[in-house]
């Protein structure tokens, strides 16, 4: 039995048994919340760095080259764009497109969220599911469906209008109607996002506030103005900001419906950038066009996020 007796002297500790000291250190390192967070986010950080940060800096570099990408020209591409009437028309159209689309998306989202919120709990889920359908269908696919409805020659809408005795509408061939059409499709696609966000916000408003207001004799409108809206202020600001960014950068709807026509009057930054950069082979100018979105969106983001922080401090 003597050979089974183990001594505990320092020399008798095998090398492998010394390892736990290091393991303990590693465990301690791994237990740090910040370390774990960084490690878990690392794949995303790498993806963002490769697919967003690098292309963003590369496009800045590209926008400062001449047409054949052989010479550094500084801000010449930007100053050139600023001197073009067509570019200013694109700026105006992008602003009209994004602001009106976001406004209607927010308005429709808010109204629909209230309607759904007031439905009996039993049937609510079905309505929520159905109203989310436009947001779930791939945009390129649904826009193609809309294009068929607006088809310049065989529009289904015009068929119905004609059947009802109304005049046909030049949905895509009249530049002003074409603007309305692309905004309409964007609103149809984006409104469910607002609906779901506002519905979540509505559900988080404490019921007691409404009860207290009812006791004080507040009307439904007064409750909406003095309770619902202030409680939803931050979520409205965040969704508007998010949607503004996405809508400003929209490409699919305009490219599929009108490709920027007629007479360049429906181009937005992304489609005009594609036209100059890819179709006309002037990548630096295309990159410069798309970068014009950045300062506009940055200014919007600063103002909106400042408002959100201010209200956060007030609530806190």
């Amino acid at each position: 039995m003597a050979d089974t007796v183990q001594s505990w002297g320092p020399d008798s500790i095998p090398d492998t048994a010394k390892a736990p000291v290091r393991v303990k250190g590693l465990q301690k390192f791994m237990r740090r919340h910040s370390t774990i967070a960084v490690l878990m986010c690392l794949p995303l950080i790498i993806i963002v760095a490769c697919l967003i940060v690098y292309p963003a800096f590369y496009s800045i570099y590209l926008s400062m080259l001449n047409k054949s990408q052989t010479r550094f020209v500084g801000l010449a591409n930007f100053t050139y764009l600023l001197s073009r009437d067509t570019f200013w028309m694109v700026v105006k159209q992008s602003a009209i497109f994004a602001i009106s689309a976001v406004f209607f998306k927010a308005l429709i989202g808010l109204i629909t969220a209230h309607l759904v919120n007031n439905l009996p709990v039993k049937g609510q889920r079905k309505w929520r599911g159905m109203l989310l359908v436009p947001w779930v269908i791939p945009l390129a696919l649904s826009t193609l469906g809309w294009w068929w409805l607006f088809d310049p020659t065989h529009s289904a809408f015009n068929y119905i209008l004609k059947g009802m005795g109304f005049e046909e509408i030049a949905w895509l061939s009249d530049p002003y109607w074409a603007r309305v059409s692309v905004i309409l499709v964007n609103v149809w696609y984006g409104a469910p996002f607002f609906l779901i966000m506002y519905l979540a916000a509505l559900k988080s408003v404490p019921e007691q506030l409404y009860e207290a207001a009812s006791i004080d004799g507040a009307s439904a409108w007064q409750k909406f103005i003095h309770i619902t809206l202030p409680m939803m202020h931050n979520i409205i600001a965040i969704t508007v900001l998010f949607s503004l960014i996405v809508t400003f950068a929209n490409f699919d709807v305009v490219q599929i419906m009108t490709a920027g026509g007629p007479r360049n009057m429906t181009h937005v930054f992304a489609t005009y950038s594609f036209l100059l950069g890819i179709r006309s082979g002037d990548l630096p100018l295309g990159a410069a066009t798309s970068l014009f979105m950045f300062p506009i969106l940055a200014i919007a983001a600063i103002f909106i996020l400042r408002g959100v922080r201010k209200r956060g401090r007030e609530i806190g």
């Binding site: 310049p152 020659t153 030049a170 061939s173 009249d174 009108t258 026509g261 007629p262």
Partner: peptide
Amino acid sequence: PEVYAWDDAGNNRWMIS
């Protein structure tokens, strides 16, 4: 009047119709 909105398939459809 819709020729201002035709893509490359618009005239084809017009003829085929």
